[in-house]
């Protein structure tokens, strides 16, 4: 089997995951990308979305992120999330409520550029929410 990728996910509150996996799919601002072992050094910002860990120590897992950064270097992949939750810990009703709040926020923004950004963000979160409800 191919080498494993060392993967770490940290949120401001704590170290969420630290394990070895075969592949991790990360939602970058410029599109989703998969990281395997020996990936070239790479850094990107993240949009809200789902991180998919495949072949990890506890099988496949999904993690919800609200944005942040991903860094790939020789040591492996480090994700600095602004906020992250393991899929199994996500509280759907609370999330639904948050989406409603964000919808209101979007309507309140005066500055068109900021409104656009917020709407973009919201759209990704909604996508994620729907995907989570289906699965």
């Amino acid at each position: 089997m191919a080498d494993k990728l060392k993967f770490e996910l940290v949120s401001p509150e704590r170290l969420l995951l630290s394990e070895e996996a075969e592949q991790v799919t990360v939602p970058g601002t410029e599109g989703e990308f998969g990281v395997l072992a020996h990936h070239a050094p790479f850094m990107t910002a993240l949009r809200p979305g789902m991180i998919k860990v495949e072949g990890g120590e506890e099988g496949d897992r999904q993690v919800f992120v609200w944005g942040g950064f991903a860094e790939v270097n020789e040591q492996g992949l480090t994700i600095l999330a602004e906020e992250a939750q393991l899929m199994e810990d996500v509280d759907m009703t609370a999330l639904g409520q948050r989406i409603k709040n964000l919808e209101e926020d979007v309507a309140d923004y005066e500055d068109p550029q900021r409104r656009e950004e917020a709407r973009d963000r919201l759209w990704h979160i909604q996508q994620m929410f729907e995907a989570a409800q289906r699965g």
Partner: peptide
């Protein structure tokens, strides 16, 4: 100081 690739 490996050259990183940055995105964006």
């Amino acid at each position: 100081s490996t050259p990183y690739e940055y995105e964006p």
